[in-house]
């Protein structure tokens, strides 16, 4: 299919065309089998109020109405194709959700699609999330998603000259934050080791480490080195405490 008679006119990519139909159906069914799917998709008038108020629609070739319509039409081919790049334009603001008269949640459908895309290690997803690796490293190992040491001025020249000034003598400035657990450069606040250890258990038990391994094996190795090091440190501390 080359585009759609109305609305979605993005040609199906050659890569998608080459994928066996059964594989596309499998991925489609994986999205549909998510327990949230039935809570996010209802009827659709095609009124377009979601797309009219969508911030991403203003700057990307992206329409939440199309997400809803393609699912309602069970358009396996287009859904599969959307899951490679299209869905990553969504800002996850959920303006579409609050405005839809049928309470459809296109942003919610997108998050299911993204999760399935990562779980299936789609190549486009790997490329798209490459620059996001620093956030993944931080959140998976410390339980914080942002820290002062991630905000390097050379990475954010567009934030202006004050940014450069802010980051000078960063350790002392972070210590001048007037509450104890905030005095940290490598994390947003000091996360206790036992808390991080509990979080590692959650990642293991819920398959998040496996997702990461498929997404970026190098990043996964770096993360696992830190995780294992912290786990060893924790065990040593426990042993020391027992001896005491």
């Amino acid at each position: 299919m080359e585009g759609h008679p109305y609305g979605y006119n993005i040609p199906i990519s050659e890569k998608t065309k080459e994928v066996p139909w059964e594989e596309k159906v499998r991925v489609y069914e994986e999205v549909k089998s998510d327990f949230r799917f039935k809570e996010f998709l209802f009827g659709c008038l095609n009124c377009g109020v979601c797309t009219a108020s969508c911030p991403s629609n203003r700057f990307f070739d992206y329409s939440p109405r199309e997400i809803v319509q393609r699912f309602l039409e069970e358009d396996v081919e287009v859904i599969y194709d959307m899951m490679h790049e299209y869905i990553w334009a969504c800002s996850q603001c959920f303006t579409c959700w609050i405005r839809c008269p049928f309470v459809n949640n296109p942003g919610g459908l997108v998050i299911i699609m993204r999760e399935v895309a990562v779980r299936n290690a789609f190549e486009a997803t790997k490329d798209l999330l490459k620059p996001y690796g620093r956030v993944l490293l931080k959140v998976m190992t410390t339980g914080n998603q942002l820290s002062a040491d991630m905000l390097q001025p050379d990475f954010f020249p567009d934030w202006g000259p004050k940014m450069q000034d802010n980051m000078e003598n960063i350790r002392a400035k972070r210590m001048a934050i007037p509450f104890d657990v905030g005095k940290s450069v490598k994390t947003a606040w000091e996360v206790s080791l036992e808390t991080a250890i509990e979080m590692y258990t959650i990642w293991r038990e819920t398959g998040i480490f496996e997702m990461l391994e498929k997404l970026d094996p190098n990043l996964y190795n770096v993360i696992m080195d830190i995780v294992e090091e912290n786990e060893e440190r924790w065990e040593e501390l426990m042993e020391e405490e027992e001896e005491e």
């Binding site: 996850q92 998050i111 993204r114 999760e115 895309a117 990562v118 997803t125 999330l129 996001y132 956030v135 993944l136 959140v139 339980g143 914080n144 998603q145 942002l146 509450f179 104890d180 657990v181 947003a188 606040w189 000091e190 996360v191 206790s192 036992e194 808390t195 991080a196 979080m199 819920t206 398959g207 998040i208 997702m211 990461l212 997404l215």
Partner: peptide, 20 residues
């Protein structure tokens, strides 16, 4: 105000889909 708290990790989920 204690250190025994993680982030919700939802920023990461909404940004990268890498959770469930």
């Amino acid at each position: 105000n204690e250190p025994h708290q993680t982030s919700c990790t939802a920023w990461n989920y909404h940004g990268s889909g890498t959770s469930n």
